[in-house]
Amino acid sequence: MMPTFGVIVFPGSNCDHDAYHAMKHVMNAEVRFLWHKDTDLSGIDFLIVPGGFSYGDYLRSGAIARFSPIMQEVIKYAEKGGPVMGICNGFQILLESGLLPGSMMHNQKLRFVCKNVYLRCESTDSLFTNSLDKGQVFDIPVSHGEGNYFIEDDGLKSLHDNDQVLFRYCNEDGELTEEANFNGSVDHIAGICNTGRNVLGMMPHPERAMEGILGSEDGKPIFESILNALSVA
């Protein structure tokens, strides 16, 4: 049986339908929207916290969403090992929730950046990256103003020691050049998982790179990895 994905909808989410479409019509999985006031996650095999501007991004990106009713359940779900993926604003919400370490600052050059970038897969040891090759380069869009990932040196060391960095910004050839790190993130970090390896946060949008006719289908292997992991489990 196909697993059921839950896509959370906050006031201000705007990539919820992209995620729904990607899972339902490209990956042929079951998908349900979950309103931010919902508290029932039964029957959900995988949660997506989508991109957008939840609660207008007031105070800080993700800061208000973190206290919404559904996020209290998402935190419990993740702590019990339930798989969760936060994309863009979803990543910011997972950071504010404490499910992932670090925080997001304004892009170093202060511009909102909406373009395709290259990502390098840094670890295949996760349910999100098991179908990828280490060092594989992807063409995936980003669209954010606050994606400048920050963590203190000790935290960064523990991310690397525990193999938690899954994606880094690179150039077309997979090199970590300064220009490739367009938002100024510490160590080119684009996506990380928690130590339990069941929670992923990433700024780029794989759900917007699912069909060749829309420019790239490099996002698909990430969702194929997830479906692999869920069907084996």
């Binding site: 105070l59 800080r60 800061a63 206290f67 950071l95 504010e96 670090g102 925080s103 600052m105 920050f150 963590i151 203190e152």
Partner: peptide, 8 residues
Amino acid sequence: KLLANEVM
């Protein structure tokens, strides 16, 4: 809890 993010 909310107004400041003490990471930064």
